[in-house]
Design a protein around this nucleic acid. Structure first.
Length: 203
DNA sequence: CCCTGATTCGC
DNA sequence: GCGAATCAGG
């Protein structure tokens, strides 16, 4: 794949929106995150940080040659205004609408809209075995407490807690291959809906 | 270990 | 210009 005009546009858009290089790479396809990062730099739109922490120059202890190399952000010569359109929605994390927190029961999670992510079909308030129930309780205590932005293809996206408060995070345990949740959450989320199988029909 | 962006440097 | 390898960090 090559950097066609269109692909570059997507790259710019996504990068500006705060998407990570790997996300962009997956979206575009045919490129690695390294390629994306490399391109981002060549395009000169690397600095997503309006507040460039002026890094006090380190002692040229071991690399005199390196010190001479042009940094991405060159303080000297006229650099193009890349910080102009720094308006992209500064809140990558969608804030869920406040929800009445009246859930005394062992914190069963409420579904939250996660952009582009499969949503956890309610803990199927239906029939969940006591065993599974206990499993969940134990599991949630060991949750990695990932934030929305830390979720990846292989982190369990099961929401835990109340999205309206700070008491909210995602399970984060390793997902079952191809599934959005960890083993335990898959079991409660994607049940074959046959808790009560026919008592005799089967064969 | 998973992930992030940054930089280098051969192609 | 490109991007794998590598670096530095969370």
């Amino acid at each position: 794949m090559s950097w066609t005009d269109e692909r570059v546009e997507i790259l710019k858009a996504m990068w500006t929106e705060g998407k990570s290089a790997s996300q962009i790479a997956k979206e575009l396809g045919g490129v690695t995150r390294n390629a994306v990062i490399g391109k981002v730099h060549r395009l000169g739109l690397s600095n997503r940080t309006p507040a460039p922490a002026p890094k006090p120059a380190e002692e040229p202890v071991a690399r005199p040659a390196e010190a001479a190399k042009p940094r991405t952000a060159n303080p000297g010569p006229a650099r193009e205004p890349a910080a102009a359109k720094e308006q992209a929605t500064p809140h990558p994390a969608p804030k869920p609408a406040p929800v009445a927190a009246k859930d005394p029961a062992p914190r069963a999670a409420k579904p939250v809209a996660v952009a582009g992510q499969p949503l956890p079909p309610q803990p199927s308030q239906s029939e969940i075995s006591e065993e599974t129930r206990a499993n969940l309780a134990a599991l949630e205590k060991r949750a990695r407490k990932l934030t929305l932005m830390q979720l990846t293809e292989r982190t369990c996206k099961w929401p835990i807690g109340d999205p309206a408060t700070e008491d909210f995070w995602f399970c984060g345990h390793p997902t079952q291959p191809g599934k959005p949740y960890c083993e335990t959450h898959v079991s409660v989320a994607l049940q074959p809906m046959s808790s009560r199988r026919d008592r005799r029909a089967s064969r």
